[in-house]
Amino acid sequence: MSVDENFAALRKIYPEVQLMEQGGQKVAFIPNLMLKQSGQTVSLQALLWPYARDGYQTRLFLEKKVDGEAKNWKSFNLLGKSWWACSWRGVQANLPWPVILANHLRAL
């Protein structure tokens, strides 16, 4: 799938998603990613990086660390902001973006 097709598929789930660019790569900014944390639903900003980066096939960056299976959180500066990503491997870049996101959410 092309970037446009992947973005359109993600927009069906998150209508507010925005396509952004960092270092020549198109990434998806999700301003309202809803997660269950400690029995409550919380809204977080997220950045889906559907390409290889830092030794990972794909990455999901969040505005803050969250509880869950995720381990080894590390801070990154992307798009002029600090983001957090955990160590979660094996999410392939050739998958559709909604599937990449779903696989990363398993860690949370």
Rank of each mutant, 00 (worst) to 15 (best):
Y56V: 08
F76Q: 06
S2F: 00
E63S: 14
V27F: 05
E63Y: 07
H104W: 07
G90V: 13
P98A: 14
C86R: 10
V99Y: 00
R106S: 07
Y14I: 06
L44A: 11
E63Q: 15
F29V: 09
N94M: 01
H104G: 07
W83I: 01
A85N: 00
H104S: 07
F76H: 14
P50G: 04
R53L: 13
G24M: 04
K12F: 04
V3G: 00
A70G: 10
L35M: 07
R106A: 11
E16V: 11
N94I: 02
A107S: 15
N77M: 06
D4I: 03
P31N: 12
L44P: 08
N32Y: 12
V17D: 00
W73Y: 13
L79M: 03
L33K: 02
S43Y: 07
P31D: 11
G55Q: 07
P50T: 04
V91R: 06
E69C: 08
Q18V: 13
S82I: 14
V17H: 04
V42P: 07
A9F: 05
A85C: 06
Q22F: 09
K64R: 15
L60P: 05
W73P: 03
Y51Q: 03
P98I: 14
S87C: 11
D4H: 05
P98D: 12
L10E: 00
L60S: 09
I30G: 08
F76P: 02
D54L: 12
Q92K: 14
A107C: 13
A102Y: 06
A70T: 04
Q57E: 15
E63T: 10
L33G: 02
E5Y: 00
S87V: 08
G68V: 04
K12D: 06
M1A: 14
W49Q: 05
L101R: 13
F29N: 03
L44C: 10
L78N: 08
Q40I: 01
A107R: 12
L108V: 14
F61E: 03
L79W: 03
L60I: 09
T41D: 11
G39Y: 11
A70S: 10
Y56F: 15
G39K: 12
A28M: 04
S2M: 00
V42F: 10
A102P: 03
W73L: 07
G23E: 07
M34C: 11
L95G: 05
G23T: 08
G68H: 06
K65H: 00
W97A: 10
G90C: 11
W83N: 00
A8P: 02
Y14S: 07
K65C: 02
S82T: 15
L48Y: 12
N32D: 13
I30K: 11
S82W: 06
L19T: 01
V99W: 00
S75V: 15
A85F: 01
I13F: 05
N103F: 01
A85W: 00
V66H: 01
K81Q: 15
L19D: 01
L95H: 10
Q37K: 10
K65F: 01
Q45T: 05
P98S: 13
E21A: 12
S87F: 13
P31R: 13
